Computed example of a mutant assay.
Amino acid sequence: MDHPPNPGPRAILFVCLGNICRSPAAEGVMRAMTGGRDLVLDSAGTGSWHVGEAPYPPMQEAARARGYDLSALRARQFTARDFEEFDLIVAMDEDNLAGIERLRPAENDVPVVLFTDHAPETGARAVPDPYYTGDFDGALDLIEACARGLAARL
């Protein structure tokens, strides 16, 4: 019996801590890199501090300098329901991956991966948080590399 090819994930959620730097940037970069594809892209944070806020202004500025407009995005908190809504959940670091997994419903098998898994050539295991490091361009360099790798697998 022939099986149709696996279409890959069609709904992808990017998750960081506050959803004001890394995950909205990943969403914006991925949206730009996959513009013509039929994908649902979103972002969320494991924390609730910034719910409803636009991405952090320095991240917006750095992204805008590269042609990515994050201004319409608003922070929201990751919930267990996201496991029902998305085919792939992408964490920016191990701490956020663990926070996501703590909310996993029983018998749910949605893959949760590190974004850096899609750019092994970088040697990075996490996208450093520019809210704390101040290195928005460095974070965007890594986010672009990871997005290229993920887009190539879709």
Rank of each mutant, 00 (worst) to 15 (best):
S71Y: 08
P105H: 08
A98N: 14
P128F: 00
D129A: 03
A91H: 01
F115G: 02
A63R: 07
E85P: 00
R102T: 15
T116W: 00
M92W: 06
Y68M: 12
V127K: 00
E107G: 14
D109L: 09
G99S: 13
D82Q: 07
I89T: 09
R74F: 06
E53R: 14
A126K: 14
A106F: 13
G134A: 06
F136K: 09
D87V: 00
D117G: 11
E94Q: 14
V110K: 03
R76K: 15
E107L: 15
I89D: 09
G123P: 10
M59V: 02
V127M: 01
V113D: 04
V90Q: 09
E53N: 15
P128E: 13
T116E: 03
E121D: 12
A119H: 01
R74T: 08
A106L: 10
Q77N: 08
Y56C: 06
Y56N: 15
T79L: 01
R76P: 08
R74Q: 13
D69V: 12
F136H: 14
F78S: 05
P128N: 10
P111Q: 04
Y132N: 08
L97H: 11
A98E: 15
E94W: 08
A75M: 00
R104H: 01
D87K: 02
Y131G: 05
R125I: 12
R81E: 13
P55D: 04
P57N: 05
P57Q: 12
A80N: 04
Q77D: 06
T79P: 06
T116Q: 00
M92D: 12
V127C: 05
P128A: 08
A106N: 11
M59F: 10
A75Y: 00
V112T: 00
L88C: 04
V110H: 11
A106T: 14
D129G: 04
G67R: 08
Y56A: 07
D135C: 01
I89R: 10
A91K: 02
E85Y: 07
E61A: 15
V112Q: 05
F86W: 10
P120R: 07
P57H: 07
A91G: 02
A119T: 08
R102M: 12
A80D: 04
A106S: 13
P58W: 07
E61K: 15
